[in-house]
Computed example of a mutant assay.
Amino acid sequence: MYKSRFSLALTLAGMLSCTAHAQSSITLYGRIDVAVSADSFSDNGATKGKTAISELSDISWWGLRGIEDLGGGTKAIFKLESWFNATTGAQFSPVSFFARESYVGLSNADYGTLQLGSQYAPSVWVTVPVDPFGRSTNGSIISLSTQFPGPSGNARGSLGTINGSIQYITPRFGGLVGRLMYAPSGRADAPTTLGSTVAGGLYYSGKNVYVAASYESQRQAGSTFGLSNEASVPTTTYTLGATYDLHYLKLHGFLERNSVPQLGNMEGYMLGVTVPVFAGAIRSSYFTRWNQNAGGTRASQSAIGYIYPFSKRTSVYANFAHLSNADAVSFGLLPGSIDTYAAQKLPTPGQNENSFEVGLRHEF
């Protein structure tokens, strides 16, 4: 009798375990992207030209996504995503293990989604579909459009990830989705607003068209922008992007404006095209940016490349990119500008960069 009851208990426990497993899931996913890159930096008089061949890790990551059905159409969700250097195995950020996104939330098809944690800024969801290079490789839009570490420290542009943020994502209305985000400063000492962020975006996906816009305003230290008399100032960025698919080619466009009190606006635009060729595609873009009322601040980037998929998960690509810097700026091409050449203080102000790369990408 005891053995019968024990067997029954094990059977019921197994059934409950299967039921719980059916209502929830955890997915391991990621991408490994490595390229061999030949980069040359021009002779600008003060600095002699230099050339190097490197193996660079493009945007590689791994992550965990989880979902649990709570009933009534509501689900608990989470995401943990880590960014790493595939050529060394090191984390991209030495202080943040999950440097891309880490959040927990509740989602309902009728009422929308609420997420809390470290999350992508609304502009990321504008640029990912708009950039012909998908925000990666040496043709990436983020080399010039996004606040990103580099030799010159790009302080003017859209945000990447917003820590300590609360985000609401609307249900889908036709092809339209909205995002609203707020991140408190968490500061008790003055300036109490430093780091606080308000942001949002609207995104429309149609049969052949994608149109999106974002707004981001964050309080940052005045010293970041050379305003030493200001403890904190708002830096506000607007973006607008669109694609139109003609089947035989896709057109890409992007506009950006960043404003900081007491300074002229930073403005930029990108034009791009994707052309299907055989099973792959030719990708090309041109991006330029400058600061109003400030000479020597224009930087321009041109890129062209071809990507060929061996399968849905594995691709090979080859790209050429050129970046020109005016006298007062020293932008660099990703991924080398953060992966390798920033430590060598390249490029210097006014120095141009050429980059040819061949890479292999695998997604899982």
Rank of each mutant, 00 (worst) to 15 (best):
A281L: 04
F278I: 10
P94V: 13
D189Q: 15
V95S: 15
D33G: 01
G45I: 06
G206S: 12
Y248N: 03
R5G: 09
N229E: 11
M266T: 15
F310H: 00
S40H: 04
Q351N: 09
L255M: 06
F225I: 01
L249S: 02
D131Q: 04
G359L: 07
V273C: 10
R172G: 15
I53M: 12
S123P: 07
S315L: 06
S57D: 00
L360E: 13
S140T: 09
P349I: 15
G253K: 00
G157H: 03
G195P: 00
L323A: 08
A326C: 05
H362A: 00
T127H: 10
S57K: 00
G153E: 15
G195L: 02
P276K: 03
K50D: 10
Q218G: 01
G72W: 07
G105V: 08
A326H: 08
V260G: 05
P122R: 11
F41S: 00
H252Q: 06
L64W: 05
G175I: 08
M270N: 08
L116Q: 08
V209T: 09
N352Y: 04
Y238V: 11
Q218L: 03
G200L: 07
G30H: 01
S96W: 07
L80M: 13
M266H: 14
Y210P: 03
S107M: 08
I141T: 03
T11R: 11
N258R: 07
T348L: 10
L202H: 11
L255F: 08
E68P: 01
V277T: 12
S17P: 13
L323Q: 06
H252T: 05
T27V: 02
S42T: 02
T340D: 12
T11K: 12
H362K: 00
W62H: 08
G71S: 08
G134Y: 04
A86E: 00
L202A: 15
S205C: 04
A242Q: 00
G280Q: 13
G195Q: 04
Q167W: 05
A213C: 09
V273K: 10
V128T: 14
A231C: 11
Y204V: 06
S96G: 09
I67R: 09
G332V: 06
I304V: 14
T236Q: 07
Q301G: 05
G71Q: 08
A326V: 03
S102F: 06
S232I: 09
F331N: 15
S223G: 06
G30F: 01
R361P: 05
M1C: 12
F84E: 01
A299K: 02
L16E: 07
S232N: 15
G117D: 01
A22M: 01
Y286W: 13
L346R: 11
Q344M: 14
D339C: 11
P132C: 05
L271E: 12
G280F: 15
F173R: 15
T11H: 13
P276S: 02
Q147T: 14
G66N: 00
S285W: 06
D339Y: 11
I169N: 15
T237N: 05
L80D: 09
I169F: 12
V34H: 01
V211C: 03
N138V: 08
I169G: 14
A13P: 03
T88K: 03
G350H: 13
L12F: 01
I162N: 02
N325Q: 08
